[in-house]
Write a protein that binds this DNA or RNA. Sequence first.
DNA 1: GGACTAGGTCTACTAAATAGACCTATACGG
DNA 2: CCGTATAGGTCTATTTAGTAGACCTAGTCC
Lengths: 123, 123
Amino acid sequence: MTQQPSKIVEFDHPCPIRDVLDRIGDQWSVLVLLTLQPGTRRFNELMREIGDISKQMLSRTLKHLEQDGFITRTVYPEVPPRVEYDLTELGHSFLEPMQALVAWADANHRTIAESRRRYRAGE
Amino acid sequence: MTQQPSKIVEFDHPCPIRDVLDRIGDQWSVLVLLTLQPGTRRFNELMREIGDISKQMLSRTLKHLEQDGFITRTVYPEVPPRVEYDLTELGHSFLEPMQALVAWADANHRTIAESRRRYRAGE
DNA sequence: GGACTAGGTCTACTAAATAGACCTATACGG
DNA sequence: CCGTATAGGTCTATTTAGTAGACCTAGTCC
């Protein structure tokens, strides 16, 4: 319980949009949500599918997402323990506009890569 | 030129979507783009309008966005110097799906805030 | 009774972000 | 003519966030 203090629950940003975007705009949240989209996942499944997230960050990201109501966390008191994560209604509804963005990224990543190349080559 | 190395131009992420999302998913990029949406802005105008971004991060974010083709940077060689930033076509097109997300955030921030409160109160 | 398991947490280390001093060259005020 | 202000940054030192990897738990299998 004495872990890094982390301002988990303090979010009195005056602008509600920044409030929300700051939260889902971190390195991992969107990725976790997208990984949960096809259905239930367990902790280590998420680790494997995402590939390069650390345990601590996954743990923290999941805690945030649960706290904000994007996902549910279900513990089965077995040994070894089993914990399942699922998108909530809110989580699913968030992914709709997010999909539009993913589609945009998919459609435009070539243009962007090209722009980067040109820039690197010295304008 | 000997600033913090920064892997500005290295982005060989296998997944193009993560590539793009990692870039615009940082703390500031989206905020800068939204601030440029109404029209041309100068460096210090962006500083003031965003409010809590550091000079260095604004400078870096603008460089990234220019590099990726989201904005243009126009220098007027006066003294004191004048530099104007503008969204490109690509920048504007990106903001379309982004608007959907902003609208979602606006529509749901109450639900989220409520969820956080409940969580803090101990479920 | 030793090894293995899943889902984490803890600690020590490294990378990134911030605050704020500093730089440039000209124009203006006294 | 000397000091000051100005815009758009960069540099350095400090604070903060993220990572890697050891460790914990307790029940089941060998």
